[in-house]
Design a protein around this nucleic acid. Structure first.
Lengths: 127, 127
DNA sequence: TATTGACTTAGAGCGAACTCTAGGTGTTAT
DNA sequence: ATAACACCTAGAGTTCGCTCTAAGTCAATA
């Protein structure tokens, strides 16, 4: 698979994919004899994994750390588990923040609806 | 309330608070006669609101837009509602991404647990 | 054979959101 | 009165995560 195909498949720019490889986020992307990247299934799986983690806001440095542990083989399973557990709690925190904000947005939207409907005449919005 | 008090109360640096004011995120922070900020309840409420929205990842530009609409008074209620609704869908998207990633992390953590426990001898992690 | 087009690299540039620096003022404590 | 301290400003610098540029290689088509 060429970089342009991968780029379309995962909706990432070619620049981003090259960047990810350069900084060590993609272990062993195969190359054809003239140096052109030829992504196999494993390389695609890594891209998909990295994309998923990045979408949730996981830091690139953490992901590089994970990839490096992965490269070192089975001896790093404990450490990898620990890393993922830490990231999981970070995501749970983030989830909490988002839920709080959603509650707040819903409250305000409801308030604005009432104001528009004229149900609420006292325009004392508490920010 | 001085800036250092506000800084402690909301766990934001003084620099960040000044920055927020400078770029127009904090409508009318009162000042004492020698030019020192003296945050009243409304200013604090704004800080708390901005902090909540920023924690959920809302962009500063959007928040500036909201603040500007707010300043223009009741005539902008419809527009403000619209803006909040848009941000709400963005947050719902983000929530979805996080949930997907959490599922994936849970799956991998379970896998690592099995490997460590020896329940799974075939070390065929699919990334 | 010339040019088009997809790929390659190293490295510069960019936008977002702070964060820090330098230099200054004003109040309080010794 | 002098020093320490909390505040002020403008503007430069930093970090993150890309994104773009310039210059080059190679294969295929006009």
């Amino acid at each position: 698979m060429t970089i342009s195909e991968v780029s379309k498949k995962y909706n990432l720019t070619q620049d981003t994919i090259r960047y990810y490889e350069k900084i060590g986020l993609l272990p062993k992307v195969p190359r054809s004899k003239n140096g052109i990247r030829d992504f196999d299934e494993e390389a695609c799986n890594w891209i998909e994994f990295i994309k998923c983690m990045r979408n949730a806001g996981m830091e690139i440095e953490i992901l590089i750390k994970y990839v490096n542990l992965f490269r070192q083989g089975e001896s790093t399973v404990k450490e990898r588990r620990q890393l993922l557990e830490e990231q999981k709690s970070k995501l749970l925190e983030k989830q909490k923040s988002i839920n709080e904000t959603l509650d707040r947005l819903n409250y305000k939207i409801k308030l604005y609806d009432e104001i528009e409907a004229g149900t609420r005449k006292d325009f004392t919005e508490k920010i």
